[in-house]
């Protein structure tokens, strides 16, 4: 992918063979949540570090000054290294980003380099004051560190098991119809029973009207099994 092919409005990069890829940019909400989780973890790690140093200092009979000196250096390293080291080691991910399915990438969609990851994390001390506002205002949701490092944060989650829920469709169906059915079948189990029934019934009669005979059998008390069988049935 080439750097200059990025459209700032859309976060689209031109990939190999000039195929445009619209990067699924992480917005301010998910990024702030990930950061809050990371800072909570960092706080917890600092607490553990303090306990470890106290225990070691007592166990080894160190003078108070030595223990405090080690604690101070370790705390400094944790404060500045927590984000940077994780992002470098885990390819643009901290624990918080992992939980929320986020990853730092270069602005051309490639894996971000070590230098870029270090830059964006050193600037974090400034971003603590201006980062949220900048992310909210920027179309690419970049904080100051991202602008300096040339990075973006994108959503990157593993495949959902029900993503490709449709195995069979009536002939000549387009994207809108396909999306409608996929959306219903994916969400049916999470819907309130009354809503699931009402929506399913409307969808069922709509399909019967446009593609008679596509759904197997006759309408039953619950439309979901018929819809599920009709669209999940593999082509013979």
């Amino acid at each position: 992918m080439t750097t200059d092919d990025l459209s700032p409005e859309l976060g689209t990069v031109l990939s190999l063979d000039n195929v445009p890829v619209e990067l699924p940019l992480a917005r301010v909400g998910s990024r702030v949540l990930a950061a809050v989780l990371d800072y909570l973890l960092l706080f917890f790690i600092l607490l553990v570090w303090s306990v470890v140093v106290i225990a070691l200092a007592r166990g080894l009979g160190l003078r108070a000054g030595w223990g405090f000196g080690v604690w101070l250096l370790g705390g400094f390293a944790l404060e500045y290294g927590y984000f940077a080291v994780q992002e470098v080691v885990f390819d643009g991910r901290t624990a918080g980003k992992r939980v929320f399915g986020l990853r730092v990438v270069a602005r051309d969609g490639a894996a971000a380099g070590t230098a870029a990851l270090l830059v964006r994390n050193i600037v974090r001390i400034v971003d603590l004051f201006v980062g949220v506002l900048l992310m909210a205002l920027d179309p690419l949701s970049r904080r100051l560190g991202d602008r300096l490092a040339g990075t973006l944060v994108v959503h990157q989650r593993p495949a959902a098991h029900d993503e490709l829920v449709v195995a069979r469709l009536p002939p000549h169906w387009g994207a809108a119809e396909t999306q409608l059915v996929e959306s219903y079948l994916r969400r049916a189990r999470e819907l309130e029973p009354a809503a699931r029934f009402a929506l399913g019934r409307r969808l069922e009669s709509w399909i019967d009207e446009r593609a008679p005979g596509f759904l197997p059998g006759a309408p039953g008390p619950d439309p979901l099994p018929r819809l599920w069988t009709g669209f999940r049935q593999e082509r013979g």
């Binding site: 195929v19 890829v21 619209e22 990853r103 990438v105 051309d108 490639a110 870029a116 996929e182």
Partner: peptide
Amino acid sequence: GTGAAQRLLRLAVLGGTVLQRE
């Protein structure tokens, strides 16, 4: 906007970050 388009977008991003590095 379909499930296949969403999965392929995710794979395109995944491939970019695995195969291309600064």
